[in-house]
């Protein structure tokens, strides 16, 4: 037998072992998967967690500013609240549906979703849905946005009836919109059916996702970027991209809603919003709670939601409610 050969193969074997070892020793990891909408918040939270800044770096871990009395590093403190050591956080970007599927299967600990689970699975029994434990960490808003040419033609305020008409196909020309003086057919841009954004759009506008006659929608796009691109490259389009995708080339319009009031996208009460969910499965473990508590705290809301994304934070009462839903700290 050739001893060199044997050595070579042993080395190969060892490398294979090393390759697989992360999955064998994956016990002390918090796994997160799901919606690309919620993902930016998670990404910032995870990078802070991973870098684990010490208390002396008050720029990144301003504990004192938020009335937190500790001398521990950031992640050590939040994990320590539940008597845990700092654990690793593994995040993966996919879709709401996948996050919800994986958390139910136990493939991940937290499934992030931009839509409530009851809208994602309308056919599921209440008993099954209740196994998903929801945590709302902030709000996203979609704007109604139009092509620049449309905006410049004076179409700056739309009523709810007009928007419904456009997406149902009963209004097909911009002439049919009251504030407009623009003779051009309307191109209505929707989102992929089944996606969190589309589901919440339907719920917000029609009260239910099961609307079968949205015949006015001409184009459906899978991402905010593509919606924006379509609005910008056209001269007749309307769509509902996320607030952060509004530019001078595709301005947001104001809407007059059910109550007769006119809202701009920054106003309290803007009708096209949706909560950002983090779902745990059948209650919330200490490990999950430690990470969630960091995001739900004043510190997390400010840093991860307010400063680093274009999303909207929870109101004080909502925040208190969400924190109450987590397991008690030790």
């Amino acid at each position: 037998m050739n001893i060199n050969k044997l050595a070579g193969f042993s080395l190969g074997l060892l490398m294979v072992l090393l390759l697989f070892s992360p999955s064998l020793f994956a016990q002390n990891v918090l796994r997160i998967d799901g919606s690309s909408t919620v993902f930016p918040v998670i990404e910032y939270a995870t990078s802070y967690w991973k870098n684990n800044p010490p208390i002396t770096y008050s720029e990144f871990w301003p504990a004192e500013e938020y009335g937190i009395d500790t001398d521990k590093n950031l992640a050590d403190y939040w994990a320590g609240l539940y008597g845990l050591d700092k654990f690793r956080v593994q995040k993966n970007l996919s879709h709401s549906g996948q996050g919800l599927r994986k958390v139910a299967k136990g493939n991940v600990d937290i499934g992030i979703s931009s839509t409530a689970v009851r809208f994602e699975y309308p056919g599921k029994l209440e008993k099954e849905l209740n196994k998903y434990t929801p945590h709302i960490i902030g709000y996203d808003r979609q704007a109604f946005s139009v092509s620049k040419e449309v905006y410049e033609a004076g179409c700056a305020v739309l009523t709810k009836e007009e928007i419904v008409g456009i997406f149902k196909g009963t209004i097909t020309n911009w002439k049919g919109v009251n504030s407009c003086n623009y003779d051009r057919e309307i191109q209505a841009v929707g989102r992929t059916v089944g996606s969190g954004t589309e589901t919440m759009f339907r719920v917000n506008l029609f009260g239910s996702a099961e609307v079968s006659d949205l015949n006015g929608v001409d184009v459906r796009q899978g991402q905010n970027q593509m919606v924006k691109r379509t609005l910008v490259s056209s001269n007749n389009a309307i769509g509902y991209p996320g607030v952060e995708f509004i530019t001078d080339e595709n301005p947001a319009v104001e809407v007059t809603w059910d109550d007769g009031a006119t809202y701009s996208v920054e106003d309290e009460g803007w009708p096209l919003g949706r909560p950002l969910y983090m779902y745990t499965w059948q209650g919330t473990s200490k490990k999950e709670a430690a990470f969630l508590r960091m995001i739900l705290s004043d510190f997390g809301q400010d840093v991860f939601v307010e400063q680093n994304t274009d999303y909207y934070t929870l109101s004080d009462s909502e925040q208190a409610y969400q924190l109450d839903n987590l397991p008690e700290v030790e």
Binding site: Y121, T192, S195, V219, R220, G222
Partner: peptide, 21 residues
């Protein structure tokens, strides 16, 4: 007119699909 093909249907919807779809 705007439309959809078999391949683009699968590519655009598989990420959001669940159960029957």
């Amino acid at each position: 007119e705007p439309g959809e093909t078999l391949t683009s249907l699968i590519a655009s919807q598989i990420g959001e699909a669940s159960g029957q779809s």
